[in-house]
């Protein structure tokens, strides 16, 4: 617990895209089925080394995401394990029917590595933001949705993905993040990763919001509040037991995600609570809006997706209980 809090204070930040690329190269070295598909830019996909080492297991379909996902399904059909690597916004939004039918419905062994998700593209605007991807993929049967919290977890989730049966969506952050995990951390699919136990309130987050939730817990501690912090890196399948335990043993749950407040992690948690154990909740995310112009950091601030924003939501829940 202490170690984690320290790790967040540690200012060294890492780009999850580097971790994903390293992991993919390592996996390709050990398994001849691993191949990669990109849509135009090798350097955006961070696969220069991969292509140099494994040119025969690398395909560039050009700027054609629907084609990319279909090609991925075909490669899987042929017994390969394809990793489709491209900007999350286009890979999901543009190719959603291919994701639904060719991957989810067909249960194809394809991994979508959605790069630079959320509002990472900042000023490039809502066309390039991918704040819908978790909601869209989560509602589809058969497809797993993983949103790693840092570079360590990105690497671990990538290594896990090779063993996984069926399609996966992995959201690979662009925003430099502090490590909230120690090296050696093992990713457990579908199991909540409790970073800090607490009795008063629960903060559940995924991706870039996890380190922010830890900071919020720190702030709450100074206010005398003992917050639990849960990294819900597997948004689908959701760890229902962890949600119910948080609802039963703390006063309520604040969820935080770099995405739409509707339909994502918050929605998934709310669905469990509504049916099995209604409990107070705050869902932090982007509420029914296309973002204005601004950098990624500016927009997170704009939508209250900050440690202070999470802290305030937690205090509101506690207030409500009194």
């Amino acid at each position: 617990m202490e170690a984690v809090a320290k790790a967040v204070e540690n200012t060294s930040l890492h780009d999850c895209r580097d971790a994903y690329a390293e992991a993919l190269e390592k996996m390709a070295a050990g398994d001849a089925r691993v191949c990669a598909v990109i849509n135009d830019s090798l350097s955006s996909a961070k696969l220069k080394n991969f292509k140099a080492k494994y040119p025969g297991r690398f395909v560039n379909v050009g700027i054609a995401e629907q084609n990319m996902v279909g090609v991925g399904a075909g490669l899987a059909n042929a017994g390969m394990v394809p990793y489709l690597c491209g900007a999350a916004c286009f890979m999901t939004a543009r190719a959603m029917e291919q994701v639904k039918v060719d991957l989810a419905y067909s249960r194809s062994n394809v991994r979508l590595c959605g790069m630079s998700p959320g509002m990472a593209y900042g000023q490039l605007g809502p066309t390039h933001h991918s704040i819908e991807d978790v909601a869209w993929t989560r509602i589809l049967p058969n497809i797993g949705v993983i949103v790693p919290a840092d570079a360590v977890e990105t690497r671990a989730a990538m290594l896990y993905s090779l063993k996984h049966e069926g399609p996966l969506f992995l959201r690979i952050a662009r925003m430099p993040l502090p490590d909230v995990h120690k090296s050696g951390y093992e990713f457990r699919y579908g199991i909540a990763d409790v970073l800090r136990w607490g009795r008063d309130v629960t903060l559940m987050a995924c991706g870039v919001m996890v380190s922010r939730a830890l900071e919020a817990a720190h702030m709450l501690e100074s206010a005398g509040v003992d917050a639990r912090v849960v990294n819900m890196s597997t948004v689908k399948p959701l760890d229902r037991d962890a949600v119910l335990d948080a609802a039963r043993s703390t006063c309520g749950i604040v969820t935080a995600e770099e995405g739409l407040a509707a339909g994502g992690l918050g929605g998934a948690v709310a669905e469990v609570l509504a049916e099995e154990h209604p409990a107070p909740m705050r869902i932090l995310g982007v509420r029914d809006a296309f973002a204005p112009t601004g950098s990624a950091e500016f927009l997170l601030e704009h939508f209250g997706l900050t440690p202070g924003g999470i802290r305030d939501a937690a205090l509101e829940l506690l207030e409500k209980r009194r």
């Binding site: 916004c89 286009f90 939004a93 543009r94 000023q123 490039l124 605007g125 066309t127 390039h128 112009t293």
Partner: peptide
């Protein structure tokens, strides 16, 4: 700003379509 990285027809006169993808 009204001058987003990609054009937004609801923000800037003369823009016909929100493109980028």
């Amino acid at each position: 700003s009204m001058l987003n990285g990609h054009p937004d027809r609801n923000k800037l006169p003369g823009v016909e379509a929100n493109t980028g993808p």
